[in-house]
Design a protein around this nucleic acid. Sequence first.
DNA 1: CTGAAAGCGCTAACAT
DNA 2: ATGTTAGCGCTTTCAG
Lengths: 341, 341
Amino acid sequence: MSPARTPPGDGGPRVTIRTVAAAAGVSTSTVSRVFSHPHLLRASTVERITALAAELGYVPHHAARALSTGRLGTIGVVVPDIANPFFPPVIRAAQARAADDGVSTLLADTDESAEREADLLRTLSWRTDGVVLVSSRLPDDDVRALAARRHVVLVNRDVDGVTRVLLDTAVGMAQAVDHLADRGHRRLAYVGGPAPSWSDDTRRAAVLARAAERSVDVVDLGAHRPEHDVGLALAPALVASGATAAIAFDDVLAQGVLAGLLAAGVDVPGDVSVVGCDDILAVRTVPPLTTIHGPSDEAGAVAVELLLRLVHREPGTGSAERVVLPAELVVRSTTGPAPRC
Amino acid sequence: MSPARTPPGDGGPRVTIRTVAAAAGVSTSTVSRVFSHPHLLRASTVERITALAAELGYVPHHAARALSTGRLGTIGVVVPDIANPFFPPVIRAAQARAADDGVSTLLADTDESAEREADLLRTLSWRTDGVVLVSSRLPDDDVRALAARRHVVLVNRDVDGVTRVLLDTAVGMAQAVDHLADRGHRRLAYVGGPAPSWSDDTRRAAVLARAAERSVDVVDLGAHRPEHDVGLALAPALVASGATAAIAFDDVLAQGVLAGLLAAGVDVPGDVSVVGCDDILAVRTVPPLTTIHGPSDEAGAVAVELLLRLVHREPGTGSAERVVLPAELVVRSTTGPAPRC
DNA sequence: CTGAAAGCGCTAACAT
DNA sequence: ATGTTAGCGCTTTCAG
């Protein structure tokens, strides 16, 4: 086990493909092939060179490879906010899927700012073969323009003409309405999320549609930033609305509402039922939150898969795919029968 | 505004430094210098070439530059679990600090596995100039070995001989003990975190030390994975211990304990006070959690700063620094006077 | 202040 | 199944 060598401690000139070739008495191309297309070589050769390379402490030079192949072997994953618990599973799955193909991922956080997102994308374009844009805050046209110049896959954003992976929470929202209607609720409130957002639009629409079918009233409590405080502040309005159940845009908002309700002495689910979305908080609320769970990890993996396909396919090939993954209701303890009046 | 061009839609050959040089009637070296050492050129030249380059849609080629300079312009940030809310602020600050120097960050998640961490570090070493290891799960010796071969800065891990940035929660822990002692608590419980961990060792030690000074009893409730469920399951033991207050290794554990206590009908802080650590949950618990807040973002930034210094300094220079940032108690609503017996 | 030329380490035709 | 030979796009001495 002689130590591999790299920057610190210097330790003489770098071990390159050439060093190894010389030591093995073969040409550099053979060594190169050992690491890129081993199937083109005799097994014994591959084995011998691999061992020798390891012994010499040879480490492939990423930049050099990238320069010759024109492929960086790195993709970008851009999210609005790492700290938002919705994203980590997506990110993790994306990284894992990329790693399977030996591709590294550059993770970028836009801090919820479209401007910063644009900046970041500019920087990323120097260093990546393509980008997965999760819940992009960019205007549709900007997204299309970007996709025209770079390989892009969207997650949780539905822009025509751009490859995208969507978590269809509409299914779950409809289930939530059914769930509540089945338990006697006749009037429910929708606590909306960010105004210009695909997620909120589809969620609200799904609630309204299914509620209409079930002849349940819906009070629209407006569009809001998905933050705990906001939900908390909304509790009084919810109570005033006369609704016996609330469906919130996401779990954070729902948790806020929950806290507000408890603070106001309203029993959940005795007096009011609450449903969240995204299953971000799992059972960490008190009581555990009924919510809508989608395969966000799968979304990340699929997005990377599609991206890698784009990267490897020659330009112009294939049209923008649109993958929809269904999200479903998970009943926990914040929903129950409507209070008898 | 002619559009920059990159992979998709092909669009002819890449715009290189050569294209720009030809168009400007200068040599490639001049163009190169415009982007790397503009101060060596006449201002007017710089301006002219910059404008021209922008117009032609020239984008520097990262890999090529890396190959020439031997510096990748990328650092790695390795965390055990992106989804753990303690890390995002660290990551974000690290990225921001790196971006200030035009350095990209490769984020890797080890999924709490030392083995996977080792794997990842191997991969990262091909593609980065150095690594920030946050809360590494690697054995001390492995960390030292790594640091001998690569530029490494540790966060939240104290290994002798390796540059590191520590959040000294011991200060906060002592404050917590004082806070409780001042309010009449004579017997408190420490709910420990992961067994082989610098954080847990120092926290526990700090609690014991200050408690001894204040003649307060401490019941050690053991070492545990910092998860909600675990904390929840520990509530009965806490009650049985007769302690009137619990200090937990971190907020997640504290929140679990809180939930378990509430479930058991124990009033917080009426009957039992609870203190967390890391200020991960902010005011999102009910009631809002008293905890210990440290500048984790600063830790991330400082770590990157130190790393970049290592990267740019020639080998062998400077000895391993040890930066300690103090974390302090934040009193919220889960602590109060000891119940009168 | 700017140009010319020699690579950085690797891959990819093209030969053999 | 391997060797030969050009570069990939950029930086960087060394000259001028």
